[in-house]
Design a protein around this nucleic acid. Sequence first.
DNA 1: ATGACGATTCTATAATTCTAGAAATATAGA
DNA 2: TCTATATTTCTAGAATTATAGAATCGTCAT
Lengths: 114, 114
Amino acid sequence: METQNAVGALSALAHASRLEIFRLLVQAGPEGMAAGDVARATGILANTLSTNLNILAAAGLVASRREGRSIIYSAGYDAMRDLLAFLMEDCCASRAEICAPLAAIASEAGATEG
Amino acid sequence: METQNAVGALSALAHASRLEIFRLLVQAGPEGMAAGDVARATGILANTLSTNLNILAAAGLVASRREGRSIIYSAGYDAMRDLLAFLMEDCCASRAEICAPLAAIASEAGATEG
DNA sequence: ATGACGATTCTATAATTCTAGAAATATAGA
DNA sequence: TCTATATTTCTAGAATTATAGAATCGTCAT
């Protein structure tokens, strides 16, 4: 991942509403969630939500598909994994002080299957 | 880590110069680097650099100490580890699709000792 | 076609962030 | 004390981002 992409992804997540949206979509899983449901779950106005979903989409952090009148958003796992890998490897130089304690979370995830 | 702190840390890193500064300080290790050396290494103006170092410091991502005329900055490992842990556990709900592939980086870091 | 619904785009205003010049502060040495 | 060096703080203008009202677009059912 290039620095520019990393900055884009970090900027997209550096916003309370957008972080909340992303977290909600991760919890919703690969099937995702309609924009309206996200709006109801978070209390964000429809137009503001749309703007923020677009910002997340531009960073690859969410994907969308239309289903009838609804537009379904889902979390972009690849982009998030790439961002985390960039932060750990490129940015933190895989320093043990930072990265070693994360092994527990990562391996538990593999074992528990999310 | 609370959401507000995470947003603060993400905002601090969501800037090309600040990301570069942080990376440089990680590479410099716990002993850190004088502000002037960071300025020379990056080509950032002294006053702009000072502003950005303050922003990183407010997020806990760098620490500083005075040594004579110089002020030495070093990377805040704890804050970065907390941010990464927050992103993996709270934000990504430890989903295997995202977190499992990171185990390699994390465990390699532990073995290689940075 | 018409109306309802879900969502986006347009638009304008408010607020924040970025940048850099100028001035100020802190330390060290002559 | 005077000067040079290292860094920060003050300040203001430029640029970007955030928010929300209004209008628009796409889909579905009648």
